[in-house]
């Protein structure tokens, strides 16, 4: 394959779907392609950089105040953190299933999986709201010490990314319902899926750092 085409995600995507349609078994993406589009990856890499900086703050703060960071997680609700992790992982799984469904030209199935993503996202927000209320009931505020400052910064930032993702989710649900995606053309759905997975990845670091690691 010429290098010019290998660097071009769209060209590879089209080639992949032509070949996969011929095989009638869309199982795996083509080598070297860009899932979704380049624009969403600029956003995803910015998001990961933002979280990397926040994790850097966490590590430096932990190094300066090890005792505070050892005691902090024990005061948080492990149940809330665990349930939110299950919500994020499940949401990511449902998105992957939705992409798989559209590749098989099963639009109704795709829409049902996306609905499950929405439920997981709403579950995440509900648990977060209950957790913050529980925190306040136990006198846990961002000003208590540096652990809780970092905790609120990280979890609020992550929550904002989930809300942005939910807006994108509702858009791709409308597009799916209107029949805009097909096995040959679903870059928009893949772009959303990639963003949602990235938001899940950020949480997969937040959970152990804030709730598990004593």
């Amino acid at each position: 394959m010429p290098a010019r085409i290998r660097r071009d995600g769209r060209a590879l995507n089209e080639e992949y779907y032509v070949s996969q349609t011929a095989l009638s078994s869309p199982e795996a993406p083509a080598e070297g392609r860009i899932p979704g589009n380049k624009g969403i990856w600029a956003g995803i890499l910015s998001e990961m950089t933002e979280f990397a900086l926040l994790f850097g703050v966490y590590f430096i703060a932990r190094a300066h105040y090890p005792e505070v960071f050892r005691e902090g997680p024990a005061r948080l609700s492990t149940l809330a953190g665990t349930l939110n992790t299950v919500m994020m992982i499940s949401g990511s799984y449902f998105v992957a299933k939705a992409v798989h469904a559209i590749r098989q030209n099963r639009q109704q199935s795709c829409l049902r999986w996306l609905l499950l993503v929405l439920l997981a996202a709403c579950g995440y927000l509900l648990i977060k709201a209950l957790e913050f209320r529980w925190n306040l009931g136990h006198g846990i505020t961002g000003g208590m010490n540096l652990f809780f400052t970092v905790y609120y910064y990280l979890t609020f930032t992550h929550m904002v990314h989930v809300v942005w993702g939910m807006m994108g989710l509702m858009w791709v649900m409308v597009r799916t319902r209107s029949g805009a995606y097909s096995p040959q053309d679903h870059d928009g759905l893949e772009a959303f899926a990639s963003y949602w997975h990235a938001t899940d990845l950020a949480w997969l670091v937040i959970f152990p750092l804030l709730y598990v690691l004593h």
């Binding site: 995600g9 795996a28 392609r33 992982i89 990511s92 992957a96 997975h197 990845l201 997969l204 598990v212």
Partner: peptide
């Protein structure tokens, strides 16, 4: 315990990146 937690974090992230995100065979 810290090592176990870190390895679990690394494994979970790798699985999501490779299989849910489908980057295993995507753009290098």
């Amino acid at each position: 315990v810290t090592i176990v937690i870190s390895l679990t974090m690394a494994f979970k992230g790798r699985m999501v990146v490779d299989h849910f995100m489908e980057l295993k065979s995507a753009n290098r």
